[in-house]
Each structure stands twice: as C-alpha cells, then as structure tokens.
Amino acid sequence: MPDIFDASQKHPSQGSVSDTTGTTAVDTATEPETSAEVARRPRRHVDEYSEVLRQETATSGNSFQAWLPKPHKVFFDTQMSDEHVLLLLRRHPITQVPWILSAIGLALLPFLVAAVFPVIQFLPVRYIMAALIGWYALVFSFGFESFLMWFFNVYIITDERIIDVDFNSLIYKNISTAKLDNIEDITSTTGGAIRSIFDFGTIKIQTAAANAELEFEDVPHPAKVTSVLNELLLEEEREKLEGRVN
C-alpha cells in the first residue's frame, strides 16, 4: 500500500519525486521573478526579436551605402550609452544621378564653349588658365557640397528612437527625434517605375510627439524598414508588459 502523502512533513528529497517507473522528475517550481529582477534582465539583442535584421549581416561604418543594418562604429551626438544603432539609412544612390550628370556636364562645358565661341582664345594664356582653374574649382565645390548633403542627411533607427538628420544646406541643420513609444502610424510609399525597379520609397511616420510627422525620403527597401519598425514597436510593447522598460 503506498504511503499517504503528508504535506506538513518535510520530505528528504525535497524537489524530486520518484514514480513507480523508476524515472525521476525534477520539480522545477520556483519563486516568481520580482519586478526589479525583470527590470534588471538585459535588453534582448535585435536578432532575437527582429526577423528582418536577423537576416542582415552587420555592415562597416566606412561604407558609402544607403542601407546599413547594424553598422559598426556609427554613433550620433545625442546617442545614449545603452542605445544601439540598428539601421542607418540614406537616400538611394540613384537619386544622386542628376547632380553627378550635371557635374560631368559642367566639367565638359569649357571645351564646348571653346569650340563654339572662341572669344576666350583672345585672352592671354594665364587668364585662360585662371578662368579654367576657377571654373573647375566651382564644379568641384558643387560636387563636394552635393556629396556632403547626401552623406550626412541620414535616417537612424535605434532600439529606442528614430532620428531624422537633415542638413538642408551647409548652414542649416534640423534634427528630428521621436521615441518608438510615440509612433502612431507608419506609411510606406513607392511610386513610379524608377522607384519600383530600384526598390526605394518614402516612409512617413506619424508620431504623438511635438514633431507630428517624420519622413524618410527615398530610402532603399521601404518594406523592410516598415517591418523593422513594426518589430521594434512590438518589442517595446513586450517590454512594457514584462516591466522591462528602461
């Protein structure tokens, strides 16, 4: 006859029970985690909750690309110590073709002018050289400024916020920030043959912050960006439910 279990007595093998088959089952019941323990739990790595970024390999910060997932050694001035840059975006390189072609045309213009209007040939040689040097200095300035505008106008997605860095000209800077918690709506637009072929588009993000709307213009893979943002929003909700809010 089997022993009658008496809960008031402490059993010698507390935490383990032997059944008639000889196998041992371990009682894994533990004390529930306190909220402080949950809050101290380390933040999950992005690969754990983002399927899109899990499939992307980390990129070097040296790259001139427009799509930089998990970039190495990329920081921004208002970044917090425990904040990580997950995605760095720029306008698609195809949007830079107009100014590149313009710069090439401007570089070739003196030869065309000299062939069609030989007026400049009446000037002394040093004046012609000065004019050419001045012209190519202007063309270089135009190209350099256009490159700086493209390189430094970035859209950053971190595990806490989204940031829109805009240098509208060399002397005008505008940085818009919104916490992921404040994102209300995400709209992705890809219109036209060029945008469809090269897979780039505009993402409009409605927020509940002071800046009602952030716009990521002509970024590559807009569908992936939208998916990443949705995954981040889900992770934020999960953090709130689990009490892991930082």
Binding site: V74, D77, E145, L148, F152, L170
Partner: peptide, 20 residues
Amino acid sequence: FGVIVTRQTAVMKKTLITPI
C-alpha cells in the same frame, strides 16, 4: 565658401560619427 565648408564638415562630423 571653403571656410564655411570646412566649418560645416566639422559640425556634420560631430552630429554623425563614422570611421570615414
């Protein structure tokens, strides 16, 4: 213009920090 470009490159470098 060259002075402005140099100054703004420094400001841009502080805003976005990359190895390049």
